[in-house]
Design a binder for these strands. Structure first.
Lengths: 343, 343
DNA sequence: TATTAGCACTCGCTCATCATGAGTGCTAAC
DNA sequence: GTTAGCACTCATGATGAGCGAGTGCTAATA
């Protein structure tokens, strides 16, 4: 168990290291005057803290830096979840700018978040759980090409060009679109495939001549590549962190950021509330010396998305946690209003 | 005027530097055995070349490296435009993968290009000169929101959400869409604004009640933010170049790459044929030690777009020029076919 | 006259040495 | 339990020697 004083020392070491990125020694802590003990006393406590695994040395006679266990303890026990609910009104600002489109709004949010923190922000979702089919349009471009456009109730638009098979009767195509719009209206996107394979298939059989061909075509339209949309802000912020002066680290970081799928997997496993993953707790090698902080936002008790910040383990946890907390609340609120308007 | 031998030496220095990124001295050149002269002879010529500005030293007793003037001479006079037309069939490969959408195709091309060269590739266009209005759809989402979708003859889809003013009559909205689809069919996107302000305005006046409001709304739909689409591949390739070990350079490069507008301006001024801009010839500070090579591709004698490669001044000019030449031809060919199909 | 050999000189690199200072652990005194 | 004192450690930065690839210049050679 940590004594009161040891806890304070741990806190001072972490706060100092977050600020300066350099090891700090007992003498320096004593001189700061935050606690009224001599260097020797502090030294003893620091030795204990190291023995218990909360602090580390970079070399045998260096000052101490926090270990991952140290950060973990700091995050779990020292930081008061700052319930003061600092209202940020980030979202309000964005909406006041006159956006209506959800995607632009989220992208903008990601950018603001990274500006505020100088870390890299990643926002997943809003997921399509609640997104519903609104309308399908097929616009012929030439004799053999057309573009299919799918609109959801949230104003999201997916489109895909395709070539129309020679054998296909234009009348059939139109009939098909009508059937689809009839049948699919209001259907959540997640269930599209299912309904397509049952109810719609039956109808197609009835009304459309070459229904098999049509059906196989439909499958490709409605195959939505990424169920989760990802928005990134401030990638180049890591270049400002002194611990990432190393080209190889930068390279592996950037290549990781280019791999959407990996990132989604990394972040998407997140549970309720704020979640902090420190250094080696992360599954992905490329971010073994990063910390990842995630917060979920909600709609109707279902998790709709995740806001994440990626920065050095030497992260301003207190600030970031407060910020994400506030932001996820705002987004939840906003989505609620949104949903009311668009259901 | 350069002697035969001086030219050969210049060429050797450049080729070696492109390869190794290190200065080379007279002795080393002599030992390579590409030319049968002693180090001393070569030394004298190198001194002359330096005096004339084709070579430089990094310090008083170092070997020589090419100056920008040296590269310029190399590019303008040494490289034979390699008319052997190495057919790459990059495009064919991509199309065989089954894409139909122009945008995906170009994006893929950018990626392949950067993989082939390990530089950063940027492709502009195809520009909208020839892109024509095909259809406008307005899909209401809720009582006060809707999404406007604009489809072009090339299968490109632009969409924008907006809120419907309370005062606006739904019937008016529909009428308006009909008028627009009637009037604008086949109109090149570039002329949209113009026609909107003249012919369409007149019609709106006649048939739609609150035509002023409608008109001002229309303006925002049809304001297309980026007339030119940009596709980038292999940004992180510069991290592999030894001359960019410097974090500050990397930082300024990445922030430049995030600024689309600047990039478009940089590249878009390109003329006919292949164009090489070396180091300080570039307008943008962030790429004063890069070289930029651009090639245009065409449709019906109008420039439709530009392919560019951005790399260190120490670039494999010969390879890159050949490659861009071939690729721009392929794209021109492809667009011709495309256009035939979709006009 | 063009080329080459020879030589003194330059300068960036690498490596070892050294002093400095911020840090440590330990012991003894308060 | 706390502090003072002391010997010790080690990263860091400055200094300098030695090396080697390079130079310019001059004189000899083909």
């Amino acid at each position: 168990m940590l004594t009161e004083r040891q806890l304070m020392i741990l806190q001072i070491v972490i706060d100092d290291f977050i600020d300066s990125a350099r090891p700090i020694g007992s003498r320096a802590i004593s001189k700061k005057g935050q606690i009224p003990y001599s260097a020797a006393t502090i030294r003893n406590d620091m030795a204990d803290l190291e023995e218990m695994g909360y602090l580390e040395k970079t070399h045998s006679s260096s000052g101490r830096i926090p270990s991952e266990k140290g950060y973990r303890h700091y995050v779990d026990h020292v930081i008061v979840p700052s319930v003061k609910e600092s209202k940020l009104n980030i979202m309000k600002h964005i909406i006041n700018d006159g956006f209506v489109e959800l995607e632009q709004m989220v992208q903008k949010t990601a950018e603001i978040l990274s500006d505020l923190t100088s870390y890299t922000s990643i926002i997943l979702g809003p997921e399509i759980f609640e997104t519903k089919f609104k309308q399908l349009e097929i616009v012929p471009l030439s004799q053999h090409t057309a573009v299919a456009i799918l609109i959801t109730n949230t104003g999201h638009v997916e489109h895909r060009s395709f070539s129309v098979p020679h054998e296909m009767d234009p009348a059939d195509l139109e009939k098909m679109v009508n059937i689809l719009n009839d049948q699919l209206h209001g259907v959540p996107l997640l269930q599209l495939q299912e309904i397509l394979n049952t109810e719609v298939l039956a109808l197609l059989k009835k009304y459309v001549q070459d229904f098999e061909k049509a059906h196989s075509y439909l499958k490709t339209f409605f195959f939505i590549e990424q169920p989760v949309k990802m928005y990134i802000g401030g990638i180049s912020n890591i270049l400002r962190q002194p611990e990432f002066r190393d080209i190889d680290k930068i390279h592996s970081f950037y290549t990781m950021m280019e791999n959407e799928e990996e990132l989604i997997n990394l972040i998407n496993r997140s549970q309720d509330g704020i979640h902090v993953t420190i250094g080696n707790e992360n599954k992905l090698d490329a971010i073994k010396d990063f910390s990842l902080i995630t917060a979920s936002y909600w709609l109707n008790e279902e998790q709709t998305g995740t806001i994440a910040l990626l920065g050095p383990t030497r992260m301003e946890y207190r600030k970031v946690i407060t910020l994400l907390n506030a932001l996820s609340n705002e987004m939840t609120e906003l989505l609620y209003v949104w949903y009311q308007e668009n259901k």
